[in-house]
Design a protein around this nucleic acid. Structure first.
Lengths: 211, 211
DNA sequence: GCAAAAGTGTTCTCCATACACCCATGC
DNA sequence: GCATGGGTGTATGGAGAACACTTTTGC
């Protein structure tokens, strides 16, 4: 029997905060050595026969204190295999994304930090975040599960602008983003309009997923 | 100590055959149960601390009999985590691609089958091939390592047409493919022309990678 | 009215697709 | 010459980016 490399699942847990108008990444201080006390992505060792999605949910629940019901979607990113990424010995890290409903979020030791400005993290987690951000930006408006997971079943143009800016780094013209969204299968502009921003401005349209 | 899921690396080993004018996939009959005798992708269990690339090279060498020097490039695809994919118990399968130089290929029990027409394979390898083919098609002309690995340092327009057809399923117009290739960084059309096809026709241009 | 922010319409550019036509080879 | 097949030029359509101008809100 060959001794195999342990596999950990590390999660980029994302949540859109409509008040702060940014996408936040969930990180938590590590409870144990190594890097005890340092911030890190939620991660767990993959159990035997466990599916990646389930491990990701478990990581988010145990390490961030997010109820499983609040996790709206998840998916695979890439695998990191540098043997020295964990000082305890070689480990494989499979990165997944997960989106959380900003609704009920039991406190916990979680720090939600803007995705655009993540503090230094333990292990090679800085690299994981850096490598995966472009992948996430690419998924937006292309992968409906990811997009709907982040924005919810119903959202406004203003929120869509904020999310896009958080992920890609720059803010699209509302007109152009509207045309992109028109072409997303299953997404429709409703005739409703949300309340305007506190500072004023025209009230944005409400968008809804078909099914 | 938690018992972890064993990780196998399964490889889509690709080789361009200029004579047959198609991209071939390397498969070999399994030596052991389960599925002994059935064709399967070359795969090995990932050793502790072993890098994915190295495991892929090992798989191609041990299972296909391809010399390591003949492997020109490799890269990551996706991970398959259905717990029932191996009857012996849950295993993770990380799929990688690898390209082989059609030069020296010591016989071995390898079958090289056209990528467009792969026979039934053991385990879930049919699904792996089906899921990964579009990813490979997308990599062509975008990932220089992959493209150069398949076509070599120097190749003709005719070969480029054949490879594109094998991966995507339909044959582009020579004119359009030429313009795509002009825009590939590091790839240049030389002033040379190769010999014409046996049936005649205009001799195709030779393309070369810059460095 | 004024500032803020979304929506409408228009233009421009780039790229992919398609095809008519020209050119160079084997036979 | 004729079939074969790559190369040149050209047109068309769709997507993205940029921006003037209009509309609807808060104050």
């Amino acid at each position: 029997m060959i001794e195999s490399t342990p596999v950990s699942v590390d999660v980029l847990a994302l949540r859109f905060d409509p008040t702060a108008r940014t996408v936040l990444l969930g990180v938590a201080p590590r409870a144990q050595e190594p890097f005890a006390g340092d911030l890190a992505l939620p991660g767990v060792l993959l159990g035997r026969g466990e599916r990646l999605r389930d491990a990701a949910r478990r990581a988010v629940r145990d390490k961030l204190g997010v109820a499983e019901g609040a996790i709206t979607a998840s998916g695979q990113l890439t695998t990191f295999d540098e043997p020295s990424r964990d000082p305890r010995g070689p480990t494989l890290s499979i990165a997944l994304w997960a989106t959380a409903d900003p609704g009920r979020l039991t406190g916990g030791p979680t720090t939600w930090t803007p995705l655009a400005d993540v503090p230094p993290l333990a292990f090679d987690h800085d690299r994981i975040v850096a490598d995966c951000r472009p992948i996430l930006a690419d998924r937006l408006w292309r992968d409906p599960a990811f997009t709907a997971g982040l924005l919810g079943r119903e959202f406004t143009t203003a929120q869509a602008l904020d999310v896009t800016e958080s992920l890609t780094g720059d803010r699209p013209y509302p007109a152009n983003l509207g045309r992109v969204m028109e072409r997303v299968p299953g997404l429709e502009r409703t005739t409703q309009h949300a309340a305007a921003q506190p500072k004023g401005g025209r009230p944005p349209s409400v968008w809804r997923w078909a099914t």
